[in-house]
Amino acid sequence: MASNAAVPFWRAAGMTYISYSNICANLVRNCLKEPFKAEALNREKVHFSISKWAGGKPEKPSMLLDFVLGNAEKLTLGDHWF
């Protein structure tokens, strides 16, 4: 029942189900034994650049996301959920 109780908390923290499930998936990956763990963590590379548009042109210099999901604790990306 713990997961049921947790629903409002992560929702209240501004997380979506996607981020919640990603963090859970990452925890599971961290439970693997060593050769598999590094492999699984390195597989989950995140790389793309995103830019918001307003008034017909890109509003600000596009934000480039480039990190490995497993090293999430080392990262601080603005208001991003990592």
Partner: peptide, 27 residues
């Protein structure tokens, strides 16, 4: 161009994986 609200590029640099796409979907 006035109707574009977001643009995303360079998604295909690494092999596509779910983590990457889910971060994008979240954004």
């Amino acid at each position: 161009k006035n109707d574009i609200s977001l643009s995303v590029t360079e998604l295909n640099k690494n092999p596509l994986n779910y983590a990457q796409v889910s971060v994008l979907a979240d954004d």
